[in-house]
Amino acid sequence: MSERPTIETREEVMFFDTDCGGVVHNLAYLRMIETCRTRLAALMGMDLRGMASTHLFPVLTRTEVDYKRPAKLGDWIVIRGRLAELSRARFICEFEMIRESDGTLLVTARQGLALVQMPEGRPARLPAEWLEQWG
C-alpha cells in the first residue's frame, strides 16, 4: 500500500471572496476547497477530461467545516488536501486552510464523497486500484 494522495493549492483572497468588512465568507472557503479537491481527484486518476469522457463523477455526500480564524482581503491561503479514508463505496478527503503570511490555521474541513455514474445517477463502487493502492 502506498502513501495516500495529498495536494497543496494556493489562493489569494479577492474582493468577490469577501463581505463588506473585507472578511472571507463561507462560500468562498468552499470554492477554494472545491478547487483543491478537483486537483486531488486528478492525482487519483479522475481528471476533468477523464470524468467528462467516462461520465463517472465524485459527488459530495457530506461536508463538515470548522472555521477557526477569518481570512481577509489580500491574504494568500494555502489549501492542503488529502485522501483520508476509503471504503468500497465512499471516500473521505480532509482539508486545512492556512494563512501563508503567518501560518495561522483558518479552516479545517472533511468531505465525504461517492462515485456516481451519469446520466443515470447510479452509485458506483470505488476503483479496485484505489483500494489496493491506498486502502
Rank of each mutant, 00 (worst) to 15 (best):
residue 1 M to I: 10
residue 1 M to Y: 11
residue 1 M to S: 14
residue 2 S to M: 14
residue 4 R to C: 07
residue 4 R to G: 09
residue 7 I to D: 01
residue 8 E to V: 14
residue 9 T to F: 08
residue 10 R to Q: 14
residue 11 E to S: 14
residue 13 V to F: 07
residue 13 V to A: 06
residue 15 F to R: 11
residue 15 F to G: 04
residue 15 F to D: 12
residue 15 F to L: 15
residue 16 F to K: 14
residue 16 F to M: 13
residue 17 D to T: 07
residue 18 T to Y: 07
residue 20 C to P: 14
residue 20 C to V: 15
residue 23 V to T: 14
residue 23 V to P: 03
residue 23 V to E: 07
residue 25 H to K: 08
residue 25 H to F: 15
residue 25 H to C: 09
residue 27 L to N: 13
residue 30 L to D: 04
residue 30 L to M: 13
residue 31 R to A: 12
residue 33 I to T: 08
residue 33 I to D: 07
residue 33 I to P: 07
residue 34 E to H: 10
residue 34 E to R: 09
residue 37 R to K: 09
residue 39 R to T: 08
residue 40 L to K: 01
residue 41 A to F: 15
residue 42 A to K: 09
residue 43 L to M: 13
residue 43 L to G: 14
residue 44 M to Q: 09
residue 44 M to F: 03
residue 45 G to D: 05
residue 46 M to V: 00
residue 47 D to H: 10
residue 48 L to R: 13
residue 50 G to H: 11
residue 50 G to N: 08
residue 50 G to F: 06
residue 50 G to K: 06
residue 51 M to K: 10
residue 51 M to R: 14
residue 51 M to E: 08
residue 55 H to V: 08
residue 56 L to N: 03
residue 56 L to H: 04
residue 57 F to Y: 15
residue 58 P to Q: 06
residue 59 V to I: 12
residue 59 V to E: 06
residue 59 V to Q: 07
residue 60 L to W: 07
residue 62 R to Y: 08
residue 63 T to I: 14
residue 66 D to H: 10
residue 67 Y to S: 02
residue 68 K to L: 14
residue 68 K to P: 01
residue 68 K to T: 08
residue 69 R to W: 08
residue 70 P to G: 02
residue 73 L to W: 08
residue 73 L to R: 00
residue 73 L to K: 02
residue 76 W to H: 11
residue 76 W to L: 12
residue 78 V to W: 05
residue 79 I to Q: 04
residue 80 R to I: 05
residue 80 R to T: 10
residue 81 G to F: 05
residue 82 R to N: 07
residue 83 L to K: 05
residue 84 A to W: 00
residue 84 A to Y: 01
residue 85 E to K: 06
residue 85 E to N: 02
residue 86 L to T: 06
residue 89 A to I: 10
residue 89 A to Q: 12
residue 90 R to H: 12
residue 91 F to I: 02
residue 92 I to G: 02
residue 94 E to M: 01
residue 94 E to L: 05
residue 94 E to K: 07
residue 97 M to Y: 03
residue 97 M to N: 00
residue 98 I to G: 04
residue 99 R to T: 05
residue 100 E to Y: 01
residue 100 E to S: 10
residue 102 D to V: 10
residue 103 G to D: 01
residue 104 T to C: 11
residue 104 T to I: 11
residue 106 L to Q: 04
residue 108 T to L: 05
residue 108 T to Q: 10
residue 108 T to M: 07
residue 109 A to E: 00
residue 109 A to V: 03
residue 110 R to A: 05
residue 110 R to D: 00
residue 114 A to H: 02
residue 115 L to P: 01
residue 116 V to T: 10
residue 117 Q to G: 11
residue 117 Q to E: 12
residue 118 M to F: 15
residue 119 P to F: 02
residue 120 E to T: 12
residue 122 R to Q: 12
residue 123 P to W: 00
residue 123 P to Y: 02
residue 124 A to M: 12
residue 128 A to T: 13
residue 131 L to H: 01
residue 131 L to D: 02
residue 131 L to F: 00
residue 132 E to H: 13
residue 134 W to K: 00
residue 135 G to L: 04
residue 135 G to P: 01
